[in-house]
Amino acid sequence: MRGRRLGPWPFIAPALAYTALFFAIPFVVMAVVSLWTLSGTALDMTPGFGNYIRFFTTESFFKAIRNSLEVTALVTIVSVVLAYPMAWILAEKVPVRWQRMALILAILPFWTSYVVRSYAWLLVLAEKGVINSWLMGLGLLNEPVQMANTRFATVLGFAHFFVMLLTLTIYANLKQLSPNYRRAAADLGANGIQTFIHVILPLTLPGIMVGAFLTFVLAIGDYITPQILGGSNELLMPQLIMLQILRKPDFPMASALSIILMIVVSIAYLACARWLKLERA
């Protein structure tokens, strides 16, 4: 007997309902709550843009988004610049049968616990930490250099994770390129550098952009890394958001800040949308 063909809905409805219920609705709730205000300990539920106005007019608040954008941009650039040559070496210089092994090795620390990873960097960078001890032991330094509790530490902590991630994505991208492109370029008289700039780089750009966007989204929303490594010498957006509920129950402000952060990410998404289409290739 031929089974009756079900429509698409029984298959897609569960995922849609789930996303609506636990993603879209909480988001709407948060948007509504962001329009309330907390004055003293009393919650004023009259809708208004008080929290948003306060964000844009209070320098210490507004500075958080600027810090976040600066740090995240720096992280993204540093990570791409460090990871690309690594991915290239893995794809081109390492013998094919060792590539998989080398790749796994390059992303192995990915599997340390993420909270512990930031903490480990703290041990490396601290005043009495490993790097300072080595450099002073070797006589290269007389005074320890401050590295922990700075923006440098935050960026480094982030870059550590994203270099691994980007090495993986860029490697995958490079391996998908047909060698014919390079041969064609060589036949047309291009040297290595020309081939790279005019052929390889443009072809891997979509992969880089996807990885960079992923880095951007994950880094700009992360609380742990700046909290452990940044030493509260400056606040990034996630820290400011958490402060709203760790110091007092100011959920309206926390909601407003979350919405602002989300809008910033959306703008970044639109900026690189043409590379990010999740349509089937």
Partner: peptide, 11 residues
């Protein structure tokens, strides 16, 4: 850590 956080958690 801090009364504000306690009140937030109670909330």
């Amino acid at each position: 850590e801090g009364t504000g956080q306690a009140l937030s958690l109670i909330e």
